[in-house]
Design a protein around this nucleic acid. Structure first.
Lengths: 209, 209, 209, 209
DNA sequence: CCGTAAGCGAGACGGTACGTCGAGTCTTGGG
DNA sequence: CCCAAGACTCGACGTACCGTCTCGCTTACGG
C-alpha cells in the first residue's frame, strides 16, 4: 500500500475557507496571544469546520497554519516583486548605510504590534519542534539571510569587505545580536541599536591602530 | 488581613518532594520533549501530589518548575564557587583564546543531549511569555552576559579592545550569532564556528588595510 | 412552483445503485452491527455517492434503507406468490398444528444469524421513532398479523375457536410472548417454546375441569 | 497485571453529581427524545464535567446512565417497601382481578408521558445491545416477572390455575401482548385491552364447551 | 504531651480543547 | 438531470490535562 491515509484533493480546496483561516489565525494571535489561540477558536472565527483545518494541516496544526498565514501575507505584500524567495536588498554602494536601512526595517517589523506575537509564536515553536523549525527557517528566514549574503558578496567584490570573511558568519553578526535582543528582551530594540551593531561588526572590537 | 490567598509556609516544605519534582521534570522533558511533559506526569513520576506542585509554583507552572530545576542544577554544579550569579570567566591575558574557550564550552552545553530539550523549552517559553522571559533572562542569561562584559572591560583596560566599543554590544556579537544558529539550526553548531565567530567579531568585516 | 424541494425523477433512477445499496446495508449490519453501520459506509461499500442515498431516502436514512432492503428481500423471496402483502398461512384443518408450523418458522427467522441484527435494528428504531415504527408495522408486521387473523377467523367459522374471542387479541397471544422472549432474551427461543405457547394459549390457564 | 485501567474510587464519589446526572438525563430524554440527548448535554445540564460521566459509566454511557437513573428512581419510589427487587403483587384471592389491577397499572406506566420516551429508549437499546439488554432485563424486567410468577404459583396452589401450566409462559401470555402493542403501536393501549387480555389468556381460545 | 494546623499523596471534580467521526449539504466533472 | 467522488459546516464523541477541591495521613509546633 502506498499511503496510510489518502491525501485530500487540493484542486477542490475552498479558497474562501483557506483565506478565512489565515485571517482568523492572525487576528486571534494578535488579540489573545498564541497560548490562548485554539484550533477551535480559529475555526469558529473563520466560519469553518474544524475538520477543514485538520484536513489541510494534519500535523503541528496551530503553528503550521500560522506559518502559512505568514507566507501568504508576505507573498501578497511582495506581489509583483517576484515573491518572498527573492527579497530585495538595497545596494547604494555604501554597505554600512544599506545594512542600517535593512536592520532598521527589521527592527520595525519585529516590534510591529500587529505581528510581533505571531512572529514570536512561530519562532518559539520552531525552537521546540525541529520539523516546524526547518520549515520556518527554509521558507521565511533563509530567503532573508540569502539576500544579506548576496549583498556582502557584492561588497567583497568591490573591496568593501575583507575577502577572507565568511559571508554567512558576517550575516549572523548582524542578525544574531538583533534577534538575541528581541527574543530575550535584554535591552530595548531601537534604530540606534541597529546602527551601532553595523558599526561594531564592520570595524571589529580590536583597536584599529 | 489584606491577602486573598495565604502564602504557603516555606519552612515546612518537603525537601524530598522538591528534589523529586526537579528530577522528574528534567527527565520527562529529556525523554518525551517539553510538549508532551505535563504537570500530571511530573507529579506521578515524582511520586508527589499535583497540589504540591501548584502550591509552590502557582503560575507558569510547567516552565517555572523547569527554570528552578535548572537553577538548582547549576547551583549544585557550581557548588562552592559562589553560585550561578558569579560565573567565572578565564582571563589568561589572551582575549581571543579566552573567548574561544568559553564559546566552545557554550557550544557543548547547548548541544548536550541531556539538557538541550529543556533549554530550548525554557528559551521558547521565555520568548512567548514576557514574565517568564524576564525571570529566565535575569536568573540564567544575564549573569553569564555580565561575566563576558567584565572580561571585555578588562580587555579595554589593557588596550586589547577599542575603548569606544560598547561592551554589551560586544558580548552580543559573540552570543547572538551562536544562539541564532542554535535556535534556528541553520548550520551545525561546532567549535570551529565558535572560533571563527571570535575572529570575525574581533577583527571586523572591513579590510584591515 | 409551490414546492420547496423538487422530488427526484424516479424514472431515471439507477437500478444497479439501488440494489447495491440494499446489499451493502444488509451486509454491513450483519457484519458490524447496526450501531457501527453508517451511511458513509454503505455508500462506500455499494460504490455509490452519499448523495444518491440521501436523494432517495431523505429522512430516517439509515433505518429507511434497511427497511426497504428488507421489503425488497421479502418480495424477491415470495416472488410469484403475490408479494409480501399476501402472506400465506397453512390451513390443514388442525389449528394447533398450523400455528405451531408458523410459529416455529418465525422462531427460525428471528434467530437466523444473517438477519437477526437487521431485524432487531429495525424493531428498535421503530420503537424509538413513531414515524418509522408506523412504516415498519404497516409494511412488515401488519401483513403477517392479518394472515394470523384470517386463519383464526376460519377456525371460528368451523367452531375450533370460541366465537366470542377477539381475533386480534388471539394473534397477540401467540406473537406477543414470542417477540417478548426474542427482544429481551429472557429465555432461549426454541421450537418447544413455540409449541408450548400454542397449547397454553388455546387451552387457557384456568383448569379445564 | 490485574487491570488495564484503574477503577475509580467509589467511596470518594460525589453524591450531588450522581443525582444531578440522573435528573438531567431523564429530563432531557423527556424533553427532546433519546436521539437528541447527548452526553455533552447531560453534563451541561447537570453542571458536571463530561469526564465525571465517563468515569462512572465508561461503556454504553448514554443508555447506562438512563438505566441507573431509572433504577434510582424506582428505588426511591419503593422506599421502605424493600426496594425494586421485591415488587409487591396484590393477592385478593381473585386472580383475574389481581392481574387486571397490575396490568392496568402497567398500561398507565408505559403511557406516562414523563417516562415513556426513556422507557422506550432503554428497551430499544437493550434490543440492540445484548450486554445492556441483559442488564436491563436482570435489574428492571425480571424482578417484575418474578412477582407475576409467584402470584401464579399461589393460584396454582389454590387450584385457580391448571398445575400443568408453566408459570413463566403464563406470565408472558399477559406481558408479551401488552408490550407488543406498546412497542409497535398497533392499537391503542387501554385498560380495556388489559382486561380483555386477562380474560382471553385465562380461559383460552378454544371453546370451553 | 497533646491538640491543631500545616504540608503531603491521592485522586475526583468542573472545565476547555483536543483530534476524529459521521451527518447531511454542496460542488465538480462525467455520461 | 442522475451519478461517483469527496470537500464542506456542524455537532458530538471520548480523551487528556488543567487547576481546584476534598479526603486521610504525617509531622512539627505552641499552649
Amino acid at each position: 500500500m502506498p499511503d496510510t491515509k489518502a491525501a485530500p484533493d487540493a484542486s477542490r480546496r475552498s479558497e474562501r475557507s483557506r483565506r478565512a483561516i489565515y485571517d482568523a489565525a492572525l487576528a486571534l494571535v494578535a488579540e489573545n496571544g498564541y497560548a490562548r489561540t485554539t484550533v477551535e477558536g480559529i475555526a469558529a472565527r473563520a466560519g469553518v469546520g474544524k475538520q477543514t483545518i485538520y484536513r489541510w494541516w494534519p500535523t503541528g496544526t496551530r503553528a503550521a497554519v500560522l506559518l502559512e498565514a505568514f507566507l501568504d501575507l508576505a507573498t501578497h505584500t511582495a506581489e509583483g516583486a517576484g515573491g518572498v524567495a527573492d527579497v530585495d536588498f538595497p545596494d547604494t554602494g555604501d554597505l554600512a548605510a544599506d545594512l542600517k536601512t535593512v536592520l532598521r526595517a527589521t527592527v520595525d517589523e519585529l516590534t510591529d504590534s500587529a505581528f510581533e506575537r505571531a512572529t514570536r509564536a512561530l519562532t518559539a515553536e520552531g525552537i521546540l519542534d525541529a520539523t516546524l523549525g526547518a520549515e520556518f527557517t527554509a521558507r521565511l528566514l533563509e530567503p532573508q539571510l540569502q539576500a544579506y549574503i548576496r549583498r556582502i558578496e557584492a561588497a567583497q567584490a568591490v573591496g568593501a569587505v575583507d575577502p577572507a570573511v565568511d559571508p554567512r558568519i558576517a550575516v549572523e553578526l548582524f542578525v544574531g545580536p538583533l534577534h538575541h535582543r528581541w527574543l530575550h528582551r535584554t535591552q530595548p530594540l531601537t534604530h540606534d541599536y541597529a546602527d551601532a551593531l553595523v558599526d561594531h561588526a564592520l570595524l571589529g572590537l580590536a583597536p584599529r591602530r
